[in-house]
Computed example of a mutant assay.
Amino acid sequence: MDFLKPDTEKASNYDHLEKMNTAELLKNINKEDQTVAKSVQKVIPAIEVLVDRIVEKLGAGGRLFYIGAGTSGRLGVLDASECPPTFGVSPGIVIGLIAGGDTALRNAVENAEDDRKQAWKDLQDYKISEKDVLVGIAASGTTPYVIGGIDKARENNIITGCVTCSSGSPLANASEFPVEVITGPEFVTGSTRMKAGTAQKMVLNMITTSTMIRLGKIKGNKMVDMQLSNKKLVGRGTQMIMDELHIDEEQAKKLLLEYGSVRLAIANFQQNS
Score class of each variant (00 low, 15 high):
residue 152 K to D: 10
residue 5 K to P: 13
residue 222 K to P: 15
residue 184 G to R: 06
residue 162 C to K: 06
residue 272 N to Q: 14
residue 254 K to T: 12
residue 245 L to W: 05
residue 168 G to I: 05
residue 82 E to Q: 03
residue 25 L to T: 09
residue 253 K to T: 09
residue 250 E to G: 08
residue 17 L to Y: 15
residue 145 Y to S: 03
residue 60 A to Q: 06
residue 81 S to F: 01
residue 167 S to L: 07
residue 54 I to V: 14
residue 64 L to Q: 06
residue 48 E to W: 14
residue 157 N to K: 11
residue 194 M to W: 05
residue 221 N to R: 15
residue 43 V to E: 11
residue 250 E to F: 04
residue 2 D to G: 11
residue 12 S to L: 14
residue 221 N to G: 08
residue 242 M to V: 11
residue 47 I to V: 13
residue 50 L to H: 10
residue 164 T to P: 04
residue 227 Q to Y: 07
residue 128 I to D: 07
residue 126 Y to L: 12
residue 130 E to H: 03
residue 128 I to F: 05
residue 251 Q to W: 09
residue 46 A to G: 12
residue 193 R to S: 04
residue 243 D to W: 03
residue 250 E to R: 10
residue 232 K to M: 01
residue 262 V to W: 01
residue 269 F to C: 10
residue 148 G to S: 06
residue 197 G to I: 00
residue 76 G to P: 10
residue 18 E to Q: 14
residue 228 L to A: 02
residue 178 P to G: 03
residue 171 L to P: 00
residue 226 M to Y: 03
residue 64 L to G: 04
residue 50 L to A: 14
residue 66 Y to N: 07
residue 98 I to Q: 07
residue 138 A to I: 04
residue 241 I to V: 03
residue 121 K to T: 15
residue 27 K to Y: 15
residue 128 I to G: 10
residue 237 G to P: 00
residue 161 G to V: 13
